[in-house]
Design a protein around this nucleic acid. Structure first.
Lengths: 193, 193
DNA sequence: GAAGGAGTTCACAGATCAGTATACCGAGGA
DNA sequence: TCCTCGGTATACTGATCTGTGAACTCCTTC
């Protein structure tokens, strides 16, 4: 999905404005005129750079995906051992949630873009699959007994905490505690680990 | 939220069409003209009945909430014992998902309607709180040790399974299995229960 | 038979939507 | 010197959006 040549300064400003506006107000509700205005750019420039609103939406989601993956991988690297790192994506979610309180941008995008052929569909699905695979790899490295099942359970908890975020229940703490317990329980000799 | 007088036949048709269109294509993307056309009704009638699109959206969510709560309560009643009934909402979710494959209508609505003063906000939040309280009541009746924590965990699993539904991973089975294990583990003398 | 309400028909307002056309500007490179 | 390239400025198209006005047709009820 990464485009060959890097974006121009104007292009970067456009994507930055699009990220903020699309996430806060919804994709359909935000017009290209508003994005052009917020990024201090002409609508003509916007169309010269991205060609259509749909392609700008795809770029917005892609950019967001990259940022989020970097955050998750950094959280994994910051962990002390392989067992702790299995639940590291939950730590990343806590950091992420400080500045993103309107739920999951990809789930939200899927809610608005009904057409499965829209590029957003693939991006959103890939994002969740990437996390699922990461959970499974981390669980395998940590010596868990059933990495595939554990990964699906962890993903469900993660997405549940993320989806209920706008409602201000503390599902993230509950999800993280439960996730840690699951990882411990799935390890051989959990009492000695 | 229930209005005093029951809806007219035309009003019911409008809400039925709105439910289908809003859920499938998104709220902002569906115009009132389309809803009027699909319900075989004039736009004038739609506005005579509901006054504005926002109020029709609120009625749509409210109607859906009622239907869903009935389904959940029926699933609870259909259970054999108090222990099984704690996870009954997951059974209801399986039935519900057969005809609703685009995720949670309330989370989706929140994604589109940024304004917290919109009635949809309250409806969506209340729906999740109702389920949280139901989980807690059921857990208390089943004699669980920490009903409040268990309820938050079950809600997180439930919402995770619901949110990831459009992605066609089988998170519902994983969530249900884990939910059952949690309920068993939180009961006194789990081996004899 | 009169009254009233639910619904229809159709035209319309005013705003906003995505996207295009045309002409212009300034800097960097061959 | 010329020429391309990224970007500006502005006006525009045609469609679609929510919402309103006014007159009309039924059907029920009193």
């Amino acid at each position: 999905m990464r485009e060959a040549q890097p974006m121009s300064p104007a292009g970067r400003r456009i994507v930055a404005a699009a990220e903020e506006l699309f996430y806060d107000r919804g994709i359909t509700a935000v017009g290209v005129d508003l994005i052009a205005e917020h990024s201090g750019v002409t609508k003509r420039t916007l169309y010269n750079q991205f060609g259509s609103k749909d392609r700008l939406v795809a770029t917005y989601l892609d950019e967001r995906d990259q940022r989020w993956r970097s955050l998750v991988l950094a959280a994994v690297d910051a962990c002390d051992g392989p067992v702790e790192s299995v639940t590291a994506p939950f730590d990343a979610l806590r950091t992420w949630s400080e500045n993103n309180t309107r739920g999951c941008a990809f789930i939200n995008a899927l809610a608005e873009l009904a057409d499965p052929s829209h590029p957003a569909y693939r991006i959103a699905a890939n994002q969740k699959l990437w996390l699922l695979n990461l959970f499974e790899e981390l669980a395998t490295t940590a010596g868990c007994g059933n990495p595939a099942l554990l990964a699906t359970q962890l993903l469900t908890l993660h997405e549940g905490a993320l989806a209920t975020q706008p409602l201000s229940l503390d599902t993230l703490s509950a999800g993280l505690d439960l996730a840690r317990a699951l990882v411990r329980a799935d390890r051989p000799d959990p009492l000695r680990a």
